[in-house]
Design a binder for these strands. Structure first.
Ligand code: ZN
Ligand code: ZN
Ligand code: ZN
Ligand code: ZN
Lengths: 170, 170
DNA sequence: CTTGACCTTGGATTAAACTCCAAGGTTTAT
DNA sequence: ATAAACCTTGGAGTTTAATCCAAGGTCAAG
């Protein structure tokens, strides 16, 4: 049995957050002390962990409410329903990744086209590209690395910083 | 040249959104008609597209403002500044991609572990994974083994009889 | 018996990014 | 010429997920 502060620190959230969850029907303490303190059971702890896990995996509180309603009455739902929800989320995430990769690519092109020197940016090719929205040419050799890799990213940045004169705006 | 509604429907946003962007310094129409209507140019359209693309991949409007603000006072910036900003964004994008890939992976594992059939979700491995702390195994084809539950052996057998050979929860 | 840490409530505030509204002015089409 | 469909403005409301505040009640320690 836990008081609100105990449960909160146990799960690394704030008491206010638990009251918020209660107000929104996600998690109510299974009892109250004589003096009115919220008292959470281990089942409540499990439920909170469920909520936090789902949240960590990117579900909104509304979606989690939906998941919890399945949890409460599993027998009335099919695997298809549950899987459908996850697959929807998966599709959203994949779409977002695809968009990010496009954006990463255009930022890379912008970066590569700029000399990065101390000169006035008046003729900076990045700014020119932003103003005119002219696409900066993709570098034939650079290709497009689809996976985030900070080591490679830093290396490539270091390299492009090193050949200032080569691919520059100024 | 576009009026606000034209530009809005062209980019699938609402006129209100464009007024909001204007109020917050992201996109001002390059002129006004005699009667005071906002008139957007193709450059404005391009700028809007940039904004929307950046937004679509998770940049806040503040970040987008920062990125676009370089353009306004070019002379006060050096190429190094501009490029540094772009490179910062690039790093952020890469970090976001990495995060999303992890998320995508865990969703995939959840999805793969579920049969997705019309059976009761009582033993759905997605729900089990959310209920427990156990990670769904990566990659190993039949890796996910549901917790032994002899109580529901009968149901379990019935369901697996209905299953078409997929590695699944049921 | 007082201090301090905890708890209660309702309500206010935050932040981002819209979204809607009222009360009018303008264009366009029939 | 009059309605429909735009546009203008300022301001208020919405959503999500908290977070904070005020005013007070409870509890263990010194
Ligand atoms: Zn430059
Ligand atoms: Zn330069
Ligand atoms: Zn199943
Ligand atoms: Zn399932």
């Amino acid at each position: 049995m836990y008081r609100i502060g105990e449960l909160a620190s146990l799960c690394e959230v704030k008491p206010d957050t638990l009251r918020f969850y209660e107000k929104h029907g996600l998690l109510a303490p299974s009892s109250r002390s004589e003096s009115g303190y919220r008292v959470y059971s281990d089942a409540d702890l499990s439920r909170l962990k469920f909520i936090l896990r789902a949240k960590a995996v990117g579900f909104s509180l509304n979606e989690i409410t939906e998941l919890l309603s399945i949890e409460l009455n599993k027998a009335e739902w099919a695997c298809a329903d549950v899987k459908g929800m996850v697959d929807d989320k998966l599709e959203q995430v994949s779409a977002k990744i695809a968009e990010l990769l496009v954006f990463q690519d255009s930022l890379k092109r912008l970066s590569d086209a700029c000399c990065g020197g101390p000169e006035s940016a008046e003729h900076c090719s990045i700014l020119e590209a932003l103003e005119t929205n002219r696409q900066v040419q993709a570098e034939h050799h650079a290709g497009f690395t689809p996976v985030a890799d900070n080591k490679n990213l830093k290396a490539s940045l270091a390299i492009s910083a090193a050949n200032k004169g080569k691919s520059s705006c100024c």
